[in-house]
Write a protein that binds this DNA or RNA. Structure first.
Lengths: 246, 246
DNA sequence: TTACATTTGTTCGTATGTATA
DNA sequence: TTATACATACGAACAAATGTA
């Protein structure tokens, strides 16, 4: 059979997991949008026909995965990238003394292209599939320190244009949410060292051959759908990549 | 007032947090050692005078923080660094195709010294406090690729000797557990790029000026007690630092 | 300011299922 | 088979935070 709910994805066997996946499916179908409250627990236990404890256990996991946020007395909300905390969950560049600051972003390049081998592998697309490629230059304290070379599948970002990107009011991941209904909830990153090339010199004003941190990121949406591949290059003379475990 | 338990650290107000901290305190005092089972839930609810649900909520958090591991039908155990998973939680160096391998370690240097400014700040010690400094060279697939320069407070590692380090049978963090009763449960890492120097050339056989990944790590024990400062330098021509969120 | 309804958070306890020794 | 241990599911009662009349 499958789930005991209509929504789709389920394993059967563990009730709270079924509830969790039913909620995720409703989320993926756009029933509740980021920033909105989902129905109160009382309504949800009616809808799913489970006890309060079971429902809470399902939502507990969604909260632990940063997909939802609970506020006592207000309700349970679909997470947004608008919240400061959420932004710094994915933006891990910090001044070497620990100070965190919002970067300013400048769009440097934008074009439509066909996925090369690396992009196709990272995004799980066929080689040569249509993609958008664009480059952002990020500044901290007024100085350009990082280049983000970003690739997204054209299929999923059909209406993307350079103008839209340039005029977006808030963060990139928030823009993905608002305009394309894409919610980044997970990233995988790999870090290497490399030497600055001619492009780094032009965009950041650093000498060719400077040591740079190279960050390769694949960002995914609700169903582990890979929606963004990003290669960042950071000048680490004043800033660094910060990470805490757990 | 304080806690309603003897053990110490508590906030009062939220019962399951008190229970959690009481368990942590017992852990820090060595009542249960890594690898051992803690008493069954039945006993613990008697000891703390709380309900099963409250106890489980306390242990849930400890499990989420990788401090304990539950096994249905067997018991709840204090986490060890022996488990493979646990090792790769702190060792994040991976071949660029994703393959994970255990490194072989060679002790290259060992000496007693006084904490310099950087070490003192990282470990929260007074400047000039006695520390041990030692250097490991890590090899993957038989090739030396990373240098770990490690500093630990002599106070906390009183009986450490070069011989002990050289003859330790298993991983370093496991050695900390077994010999010093120190359990690393948390790390903070900062990553930068740098250029290979003369020491890198000597120990890894790479040309001076090669781009290298520099990782600064502070490792902490149960009560956020900082017990190890480590500066690693990785040749990222074949390997990389891998990271998944969440 | 107060009172009240709404919503999530905490604590309690019971019954049953599943894995292990 | 039996006993033990954790896992799941249920639901009641009260506390705390929030928004509104």
């Amino acid at each position: 059979m499958g789930s005991r709910f209509d929504a789709g994805a389920a394993i059967g066997g563990v009730l709270y997991k079924d509830v969790k996946h039913a909620i995720l499916a409703a989320l993926a179908e756009g029933e509740w949008k980021p920033g909105e409250a989902i129905p109160p627990e009382r309504k949800l236990i009616e809808r799913f026909g489970v006890s309060i404890g079971t429902l809470r256990k399902a939502i507990d996991e969604l909260v632990a995965e940063n997909i939802m946020i609970r506020h006592q007395g207000r309700g349970t909300f679909v997470a947004t990238h608008r919240q400061e905390d959420h932004f710094f969950r994915f933006f891990r560049i910090v001044r070497q003394d620990g100070y965190r600051e919002f970067p300013t972003v400048q769009l440097a390049k934008f074009r439509r292209a066909k996925a090369d081998k690396e992009e196709a592998a990272a995004l799980g697309l066929p080689l040569g599939e249509a993609v958008f490629r664009f480059t952002n230059v990020l500044s901290l304290e007024g100085r350009a320190v990082m280049i983000d070379a970003i690739t997204v599948p054209a299929e999923r970002f059909r209406t993307l244009t350079e103008k839209l990107l340039r005029e977006r009011p808030n963060t990139l991941y928030n823009f993905y949410q608002d305009v394309f209904g894409i919610n980044i909830i997970r990233t995988e990153e790999r870090l290497r060292a490399t030497l600055a090339d001619e492009e780094d010199h032009e965009l950041l004003g650093i000498p060719v051959g400077t040591a740079m941190l190279k960050i390769l990121r694949v960002a995914s949406s609700y169903q582990n759908e890979r929606v963004e591949y990003r290669v960042s290059r950071l000048d680490t003379s004043d800033y660094e990549f910060a990470l805490s475990q757990p």
